[in-house]
């Protein structure tokens, strides 16, 4: 274990990074879980063994609680010996520089000389329109106007529970430049299935390369989006400017003018 120093504490070895509790490389982790076993001394032992099976050395069961109906809840601290090589990490991110509202509209006018057609929808059975509304609606989110307010964007918010078929039909009909798909409900990975189905459908129609297809949601990031065949993915706290800054540049780069 590395030695602590009062002055200029020793830097971590980035090729072998471990969780930090209060000492470099102490490997301390907090976790909680429920087991379907009745509360009692056996449950306590079960919690300890479970933590060891997870790879924690010397697990401390600081709290255990009877949840009733044969369930027990554990709050545990343990030490992990696992480490990762931080220098080996390369994460895909959306790197576009964030432009302002006026700047974006001016950029579209100059580059494309026409309004960009953007379709937004919360697809499948998902009824949570809060995400797509934040990006599309006039009012926007957190002081950032939504795309409906952009004079150089023809924004269509199709709302929630939009079937993939309908989105594709609309995209054809309106000759869309960009599709924005929001997914909030992620239980049983329903969003993965639904997002993949959209890409399949666009490919089958020969539309995939004619537009940018972007997804967003609390459980979505760029890495996942790329994996599913999207052009980009945006997570929480994204505003219309983030998304627009990406798609105006990307459309230009791909010559989709």
């Amino acid at each position: 274990m590395a030695i602590k120093g009062r002055e200029g504490a020793e830097p971590p070895d980035l090729t072998e990074v471990r969780p930090y509790g209060d000492t470099l490389d102490d490997g301390q982790v907090q976790l909680s879980f429920t087991l379907p076993v009745p509360y009692g001394p056996e449950a306590k032992e079960a919690g300890r063994r479970m933590a060891r099976e997870m790879g924690f050395e010397d697990p401390q069961l600081y709290h255990i609680e009877d949840l009733g109906e044969g369930y027990t809840y554990f709050i545990v601290y343990g030490r992990t010996a696992a480490s990762i090589d931080f220098t080996d990490i390369d994460v895909a991110t959306v790197d576009s520089e964030r432009m302002g509202f006026k700047e974006l509209n001016a950029f579209i006018e100059e580059t494309f000389g026409r309004e960009l057609v953007v379709l937004g929808a919360c697809t499948g059975t998902d009824a949570h329109s809060v995400g797509i509304d934040a990006i599309m609606n006039m009012k926007g989110y957190d002081g950032d106007y939504g795309l409906e307010r952009y004079p150089m964007v023809e924004a269509h918010n199709l709302g929630m529970q939009v079937p993939n078929e309908k989105l594709v039909t609309k995209a054809l009909e309106l000759d869309a430049d960009v599709l924005l798909v929001s997914q909030v409900v992620t239980q049983k990975d329903v969003h993965i299935e639904n997002l993949s189905a959209l890409i399949d459908m666009l490919e089958a129609e020969g539309l995939r390369d004619q537009m940018l297809v972007i997804c967003g949601g609390p459980r979505i990031d760029h890495e996942l989006a790329l994996e599913l065949g999207f052009d980009a993915g945006f997570g929480p706290e994204t505003t219309a400017r983030d998304v627009a800054s990406y798609f105006v540049k990307e459309l230009r780069e791909r010559g989709l003018t």
């Binding site: 949840l67 009733g68 109906e69 369930y71 009824a127 949570h128």
Partner: peptide, 17 residues
């Protein structure tokens, strides 16, 4: 379990859609 832990009202959230 919730009732045992002190819940007075249980709501069963509906499936989305």
């Amino acid at each position: 379990t919730a009732a045992r832990e002190g819940a007075d009202i249980i709501a069963v959230i509906r499936s989305t859609g």
